[in-house]
Nucleic acid binder design. Structure first.
Lengths: 351, 351
DNA sequence: GCTTCAATTGTAAGCGCTTTCATTTTTTAT
DNA sequence: ATAAAAAATGAAAGCGCTTACAATTGAAGC
């Protein structure tokens, strides 16, 4: 006697009802279930006549492929796990958008999870995605150690790390040259005549925060301007910390005619503080951001910033996966992208 | 002879290696696989001693639960499918963030897909998510018909529609009172003395675009100001269309001292155009947006707008699912939320 | 017509887990 | 101590699909 399962007599949900199986289709079409599977997946060979028979049967029965069962049997889920620090804000969405667009065409799906820049949570999320047997992971993680990621790769986990470069698994990384970006920003300020340049850094425990600062320092060094901690404030990539940064800098008596910020949010915050203090942008103080998020151009004046080809990086991560994991050929990607300067209205030569 | 499967001798990926099964764990622990399943899922009863035995065995073997197999057997995937129009921008990410936060605590995951406001694509995505046997869907869809969604619900698909209200399945909808929001915005302008109010609408084929305009019209009517198409421009919710809107309005000779926009992006775009034309905000023209996205406060002056409790709506969608589909109790949600006015610096009384 | 080989289809063994039902063990009550 | 009830465990039948291999059919060559 067959077991009765999944019973919930009170409310029939979709999954409890209407579960037409491949078996039923095969019977209706008068073929074996293997053949039905073949037409569904377009594998093997099947005569045109048979295919039509099967298609008709599927349509008449309202068959819906059960991807879960298929995944178990084939050991492929066609699902990519994606860990991002947060979902809100303009940045991660744009990046995921780039990935999604590329994956959608290949009929892959994205299972997303947030890591909240917390090593513990990041690990749990990676674990969960692995348990769900994602074919590959795209990791935008900030707190977990390099070693941990290297280990994962050595265990055979197919993953690509974005916005972070780890030498040992460089092939699995796709990142922006943040040092160069930091350099470009400050170099621009120096080039137009500034020498007193404040710097509002991102969280320095994050690789990008650190690297952008390094770039800033290199630019100063290149131009023979001495770097001083007194002109640097460590923010946390949030707008508010930009505001606080300016206030703190001013409070400690720092003198500057320009301020470089590690991202656009903080630059916005800085601009707000500057205005509060009666300093005009860019006449009194020049401001430069980083990322070129969508709203950078909405500010007034438009924010001069460093372009982070975020969508491109997102799509490259997808291409990496498509090529490496699914064997799709001719997908192009590079491992380190270059930032570039976007001139708008918040920078000008000092008076 | 057992079949050999899943073979790819050249490169062993994670899923091909290290596949410890429940069976192996059960043997190592000297219990049946049913018992191992019980400790994993914390179901049924198992003696503390046995539990420890199993736990140890799992740890020693490095067991990882195979959620795909579990899903097939239990007919539950613990996955929620989420269709959003787009991934980029500040709006959808914030909403998904609200959902994710609530779902993460319940150990559910989100499979995301984008519909691009295209009925065909939206349907395909819904289909794909159903094939992946999501336990529930959260649909932020704009192009698909009400009827289609009603049908889905009648078929037993567990779904919640966000940002859209459909009478017949009102219980499955969580939305903002957009009419009220539109009303609030224009009413504010009227209250502070404006009577010549231009309106830059969102796409009118979308419910929210239409409803916000309706609210605007109601406010005018309430205050005895006649509505005229000449003062209305249909944009598409993108910043650029705000810019174009102002230009078009001015080009057609419309006279206005204030402009209400159907979202913050278009308001930003409008402000840019206004400045280009030498009109000061708010001295010459007041501007009000809608949504209160994160960057609204970064603009200068800060954008007066209507708050869309986006994160809250996101989390309510999650609560709906948790309660309805997973039987978690005491989850609170309401079906129609109220917008409210956020006063910042872009509106003032006409001179 | 008879081989030979390729194209097509079927058979059935899993994939790794959950869950019903039966069985065994333990506890409680008498 | 013993019966009855409760707790713990095990056996095994699926979940719906894929796929290796075998079997069949069809076409081509002689």
């Amino acid at each position: 006697m067959p077991l009765k399962r999944h019973g919930n007599p009170s409310r029939k949900t979709y999954s409890e009802v209407n579960m037409v199986t491949i078996k039923q289709v095969s019977e209706k079409a008068g073929v074996s279930s293997a053949t039905v599977s073949r037409v569904i997946n377009n594998t093997g060979t099947v005569k045109e006549k048979t295919r039509e028979l099967v298609m008709t049967a599927m349509a008449e029965l309202g068959y819906r492929h059960n991807v879960v069962a298929a995944s178990l049997a084939s050991n492929k889920t066609h699902t990519i796990g994606y860990v991002v620090p947060e979902l809100h804000g303009s940045f991660f969405g744009a990046m995921m958008g780039g990935t999604e667009q590329a994956l959608r065409q290949a009929k892959k799906h994205m299972l997303i999870a947030t890591g909240h820049s917390d090593a513990q949570i990041e690990k749990e999320q990676i674990d969960a995605l692995l348990s769900r047997r994602c074919d590959a992971l795209i990791l935008h993680v900030e707190a977990v150690s390099d070693e941990y990621l290297v280990n994962l790769v050595h265990q055979g986990v197919e993953l690509v790390v974005v916005n972070r470069f780890i030498e040992e698994i460089g092939d699995n990384c796709i990142s922006l040259d943040n040092v160069k970006g930091g350099y470009l920003a400050s170099r621009h300020l120096l080039d137009i005549g500034h020498t007193q340049i404040a710097y509002i850094a991102g969280s320095l425990f994050k690789a990008d925060g650190k690297n952008r600062l390094t770039g800033h320092q290199q630019a100063l060094a290149d131009m023979g301007v001495e770097y001083t901690d007194n002109l640097t404030y460590e923010g946390n990539f949030q707008a508010k910390s930009g505001t606080e940064g300016i206030r703190a800098l001013v409070a400690r008596g720092a003198k500057f005619t320009a301020v470089a910020c590690a991202n656009d949010e903080m630059a916005s915050g800085a601009m707000i503080a500057l205005r509060e203090l009666g300093r005009r942008v860019p006449e009194d103080v020049s401001v430069i951001g980083f990322d070129n998020v969508d709203f950078a151009s909405y500010l007034s004046p438009g924010l001069t910033t460093i372009d982070y080809p975020v969508q491109k990086i997102g799509s490259m991560a997808a291409h990496w996966v498509l090529e490496r994991v699914y064997g799709h050929t001719r997908h192009e990607y590079q491992h380190i992208l270059s930032p570039r300067l976007i001139l708008r209205g918040t920078t000008s030569s000092p008076e």
